[in-house]
Design a binder for these strands. Structure first.
Length: 175
DNA sequence: CCCTGATTCGC
DNA sequence: GCGAATCAGG
């Protein structure tokens, strides 16, 4: 895969939107996050809003000449890497469309600066709803979503982890 | 463990 | 220029 004009433009766009390198890699397809990061640096648009410093120390010795195993996604990143969560998550979306963040004791505390309305949501932001929809206090988490998921790490965990009493009726006893 | 970006350097 | 390997860190 090469960097044609369109792919570079998309890279710039997604990078500026705050997607992670791996997310962008999945979006572009057939490329690794390393490639994305490398390109980002070459384009000189690194350092998005992150604290600087921490220069990586010099690398160590040479690399073996092993045949590079290419973990390439099959054209379309239906699943990203070993996202074991994805299937479980999708299933849950169907069965439990309305998570109850109010029920979560403390994990629903979202930094003010990160919260956003439905207008601010992008592919990279967590769409976990907090509060009563329609009310003034309602907002979305706004954190960075996991690759291929609408939620951030915290909320993805909440979403796919069985909440005991959320079990659907178990008509499908044997399987 | 999962992930993140940063850097080096053989190609 | 490209990106795997590696690093440092959350």
């Amino acid at each position: 895969m090469s960097w044609n004009d369109e792919r570079v433009e998309l890279l710039k766009k997604l990078w500026s939107e705050g997607l992670s390198a791996s997310q962008i890699a999945a979006e572009l397809g057939g490329i690794t996050r390393n490639a994305v990061i490398g390109k980002v640096h070459r384009l000189g648009l690194s350092g998005r809003a992150k604290a600087p410093a921490v220069a990586a120390r010099p690398r160590k010795a040479a690399r073996p000449e092993a045949p590079a195993p290419r973990p390439q996604a099959p054209t379309r990143p239906a699943t990203i890497g070993n996202t074991a969560l994805a299937p479980a998550f999708e299933e849950l979306v169907e069965t439990a469309p309305a998570p109850a963040p109010e029920a979560q004791p403390s994990a629903n505390i979202v930094p003010m600066g990160q919260r956003c309305t439905i207008m601010n949501l992008t592919e990279a932001t967590c769409r976990w709803p907090v509060g009563e929809p329609g009310t003034d206090a309602f907002y979305f988490c706004g954190g960075r979503s996991l690759p291929g998921m609408p939620y951030c790490t915290t909320h993805a965990r909440m979403a796919y982890q069985p909440v005991q009493d959320r079990r659907r009726d178990r008509r499908v006893a044997r399987l």
